[in-house]
Amino acid sequence: MRRADAIQSHLEDGLNLIAALAIFFLMFVGVVQIVGRTFFDFAIYGYIDWIEQASVLFAFLGIAYAQRLGSHIGMDLTMGWRPSIRWKVELFGVVVAIGIISVLVYASFTNFLRAYSIGDSTMDIRLPTWPAKLMVPLALSLLWLRLSLQIWGYLRMIAHPDAEPIAVPKLVTIETQVQDEIAEVLGKPDTR
């Protein structure tokens, strides 16, 4: 399981880096577009179409990475509960999530196939939309794999509560979270 988690983590890290570079590139292109139009009467041909198609990179490529770290926005109502109960609640949430993601992978893949088969393109400069639409089921499939690893990891933690967590986000206690927030505000390094 540790090996599968490591391989998956490397893939997620790489895709997250691509997503970060896409954000940087889109910011750079946006500045060029604004400065060009304002001062030089120059515009990037098909700017809106390019931005629309590239947005899928930063919107979806980092989703499995965020799931691995447990950094999606959410409320942790179980922070004060015993770890054994928290692992079960987390498992339930991941099982529900994998069901939803399974439906989304199928639906987004059929959307890609439809766009590919009819030659769908953008309105302005006729960029094909299928590459961007293919990125969605690919990124969601990677998330599906991460959720599968987490189910395996949570089942392992339920069976062996004292084991080292593998392939699941670390459970943080209220005390640890408060200490981390205080250290962050004071600018002190994490001592754990």
Rank of each mutant, 00 (worst) to 15 (best):
T78I: 10
R2T: 13
I98Y: 00
F60K: 00
L171K: 06
H72F: 09
Y45S: 07
W130T: 05
R3V: 13
T191N: 15
V172G: 03
T191K: 12
A20E: 09
A159T: 13
V168G: 14
G153L: 12
V89I: 13
Y45L: 07
A163V: 09
M79Q: 02
G80V: 01
G153K: 13
T173A: 02
I73H: 00
M135N: 04
I125S: 12
T78N: 03
L57A: 05
A167F: 02
Y106F: 08
I151E: 07
L113V: 15
G74I: 01
D180F: 03
Y45I: 07
S55H: 03
I98S: 11
P128V: 13
L91R: 02
G62K: 03
G74W: 01
I118E: 05
F60Y: 05
M123P: 11
E181F: 05
I98P: 01
G187Q: 15
A22C: 06
V96E: 03
L140R: 01
L11K: 06
F60P: 02
L140S: 07
A43N: 11
E12D: 14
E184H: 14
T78Q: 05
Q33M: 12
Y116M: 07
V31W: 06
A183D: 11
L186H: 08
T191Y: 12
A4E: 01
P169R: 10
V172L: 06
W87L: 02
P161D: 10
A163T: 07
I85G: 02
F42Y: 13
I51A: 03
E184L: 15
F92L: 13
V185E: 10
V172T: 10
L104N: 03
P165G: 06
H10V: 11
F40L: 09
V136T: 13
G14L: 11
W81C: 08
W152Y: 10
P189D: 07
A64G: 07
I7Y: 12
G74T: 02
A19S: 09
P128G: 15
S108Y: 09
V95D: 04
L143Y: 01
P169V: 08
L113S: 15
E184A: 15
W144S: 08
R114E: 14
H160R: 06
K188N: 06
L149E: 03
A64D: 00
I18G: 11
S141F: 15
D13C: 04
A159Q: 08
R156P: 05
S9A: 15
A6K: 07
A20G: 15
T78K: 02
G119S: 08
F42K: 04
P161L: 06
V172S: 09
A183M: 13
A159I: 11
H10L: 11
T38I: 04
W152S: 12
I85T: 01
E175L: 10
L138S: 07
F60Q: 10
D49P: 09
S117T: 06
V178S: 06
A64L: 00
I73S: 06
F60D: 00
K88I: 04
R2Q: 13
L113Y: 14
F39V: 07
A20D: 04
T38V: 03
A97R: 07
D180M: 07
L77A: 01
V35F: 10
M157Q: 15
Q53K: 02
S121G: 12
Q177I: 13
K88F: 05
V29E: 12
P137L: 03
A6D: 14
L91H: 00
I125M: 06
L26T: 15
M135Q: 09
D180S: 09
A159F: 14
L186T: 01
P161Y: 13
G14W: 11
A4Q: 08
V168E: 04
T191H: 12
